Computed example of a mutant assay.
Amino acid sequence: MSHSTKRIKSETMWPIECQFIEHQITSGAWVTQQTQLVGFKLIPDDLSANLGVLQLQRSERKDYRNNLKADPPKLYAILYTTPQREICTLTASPRAAQRFMDQKFLVLSNQMPEEVRLWIESYVHKR
C-alpha cells in the first residue's frame, strides 16, 4: 500500500490528523511537560505528522452507540510513550481506550467532530 493510499477514507477507515500541544504543568517545585489533544484535522495534508487511522470494528458497535449518546461524544488517541509520542491508534470505543490505559500507553481524548459522528452513526445503523 502506498503512502497516499493510507490517507483515503472508506466505509470503515478514516485517516485523521491529531493536533497536539505541549504545555508545562507546575506542581510545587516540579515542572513537567504534558501533551494535550486539542483537535482533529479530517483532511490531512500529504506530509501530516500525527496521522492516525480510525478503523471501525463490528465488535465495537455497541461501544460506538454508547459513545454517540454521550455529551459530547469523544475520539481517543492512543499514543506510544516513546519520546516522540507516536500515534498507535485512534478509536471511538471508550472500552478499547480504557484497555490501553492499563498498559504503557498515553490515552488522550477530545470531542468527536460532527462529520465523524455522522460517519460512525451511518456505520452503526448498517446491517
Rank of each mutant, 00 (worst) to 15 (best):
L51C: 00
N66V: 03
F20R: 09
M101T: 10
V124R: 00
A92P: 06
F100L: 01
N66W: 08
R95Q: 12
L54H: 00
V124I: 01
R85T: 09
I78E: 00
R127Q: 14
C18F: 07
P72N: 03
A92T: 01
I25S: 12
Y80G: 07
L90V: 05
T82Q: 04
T12I: 15
A97P: 13
S10L: 08
R127P: 04
K9I: 07
W14H: 01
I78T: 05
A49R: 03
F105K: 12
L90P: 02
I120P: 05
W30S: 14
I87A: 00
D45I: 03
S4H: 14
S27P: 04
R65I: 14
L79N: 04
V31I: 13
M101I: 06
I120K: 07
L47A: 13
F100T: 00
E60D: 15
I78N: 05
Q55Y: 04
E86I: 11
L42M: 08
L42R: 02
P72V: 10
P15R: 05
L79I: 06
A49W: 08
V53G: 01
L90R: 03
R99Q: 11
W14M: 03
Q84G: 13
C18Y: 12
D102H: 10
S2M: 11
P72M: 08
I43M: 03
E114Y: 13
V53D: 11
T5E: 15
A97N: 08
R65D: 13
P113L: 03
Y123G: 06
L56Q: 02
T82R: 00
A70G: 00
L56P: 04
D71Y: 10
D102P: 07
Q24G: 10
I43G: 09
S10H: 11
I21A: 09
S122L: 06
S4P: 07
Q57K: 12
I21E: 15
H125G: 08
H3G: 08
L68S: 05
E22V: 05
Q84H: 10
L68Q: 04
V38W: 05
P44I: 02
F40H: 05
S10C: 04
F105P: 01
A49E: 14
L47E: 15
I21P: 05
P113K: 00
N110L: 02
T89I: 01
R117Y: 07
V31R: 07
A92Y: 02
N50H: 08
E121C: 11
T26D: 06
K126L: 12
Y64I: 12
E11L: 08
P113S: 00
I8D: 03
Y80Q: 06
P15K: 00
L54W: 09
F105S: 11
L51G: 11
R7T: 13
L79A: 05
D45L: 10
K62N: 14
I43D: 12
A97E: 08
L42G: 09
S122E: 15
V116E: 01
L106T: 07
T32R: 12
W119C: 06
G52A: 09
T12L: 02
N67D: 10
C18M: 07
Q34C: 09
D71R: 14
A70N: 11
E11Y: 10
Q98C: 11
Y123P: 13
T82N: 12
R85K: 05
F100R: 01
